[in-house]
């Protein structure tokens, strides 16, 4: 068991290091100039050298992503609860949420920039893409309750409030967490796409703007360094949402069940 776990950690780590080493070797052996393809070592050095600039941008992008995710979680969950408690509301407004979802955010961003400051527009774009999966999943969860359990609550004359609190919400939790995991990843993507569209420089410049800016200046190592930070942010969000999901579900839900080999 322990050995199995060690191999599971070791193998991907080794593969990753091997890929980096190969990359480094190819760049050095072929004398590829950094402006075409920088070596990993140079990207690392750039990350350290440009940290004051990049860290500021990281904070900007991450805080926008998290704000959007929190807003999408609160908004999506509340709307799903309203939809579940009052179905006419769902029939009325669900099409609007679908329209917002299927319209690519990159197409909405320029329009939002007409009405909002770049920072606000980025936040709204990020919110829009994260909102729908949370709403749709939570809605599905709130309505996919075991019919026998609903009958049981009806037989014991449970109020609809208690039915929601003790039955629908716990039943919807795995669905909501699935939506949160998708929404977390999408919030970052939404923020990055909107930053590129907004192109805001100076104080409020996020990581995506650093990539665009470095591209114009042919500062390819810095492009890669910013890219690394975006990837790391995405992984961090994924780890957080997955951990949250595990913490809440591992006692009872099959998705978190570890199967004996």
């Amino acid at each position: 068991m322990n050995r199995d776990r060690a191999i599971r950690t070791l193998l991907p780590a080794l593969a990753f290091l091997a890929a980096l080493a190969a990359w480094e070797a190819i760049v050095r052996i072929n004398h590829i100039p950094p402006v075409i393809l920088p070596a990993p070592s140079l990207i690392g050095a750039t990350l350290v050298k440009d940290w004051p600039t990049l860290s500021g941008s990281l904070v900007v992008t991450l805080s926008i992503t998290l704000e959007a995710l929190v807003a999408a979680t609160v908004g999506g969950t509340l709307l799903a609860l309203l939809f579940a408690q009052w179905r006419p509301l769902e029939y009325t407004f669900f099409p609007f949420t679908v329209i917002l979802q299927v319209t690519p955010v990159i197409a909405i961003a320029p329009l939002l920039l007409v009405y909002l400051t770049p920072g606000e527009a980025v936040l709204v774009c990020s919110f829009l893409v994260a909102f729908f999966p949370i709403l749709a999943n939570t809605s599905l969860g709130l309505t996919s309750v075991d019919h026998n359990l609903l009958d049981l609550f009806q037989m014991y004359r449970a109020s609809s409030w208690r039915q929601l609190l003790w039955l629908r919400i716990p039943a919807a939790l795995p669905y909501f967490l699935g939506g949160l995991r998708i929404g977390g990843g999408l919030a970052l993507i939404g923020a990055i796409v909107a930053e590129i569209a907004a192109g805001s420089a100076g104080e409020g410049a996020g990581l995506a703007f650093r990539i665009v800016e470095s591209g114009y200046r042919l500062n390819i190592p810095r492009m890669f360094a910013a890219l690394v930070l975006i990837s790391v942010s995405g992984v961090a969000i994924f780890v957080c949402t997955t951990t949250l999901s595990w913490l809440l579900l591992h006692r009872w839900h099959d998705s978190a069940r570890r199967r004996e080999p």
Binding site: F153, R162, L167, P170, A171, W252
Partner: peptide, 25 residues
């Protein structure tokens, strides 16, 4: 009422499942 399936709430332990009708009272 006992259904064909056990129809327990999977998120609640046995105590909380049996408590449910009393809790609703």
């Amino acid at each position: 009422f006992v259904f064909q399936e056990p129809t327990l709430m999977p998120w609640a332990n046995v105590f909380d499942n049996v408590w449910l009708p009393l809790r609703l009272q």
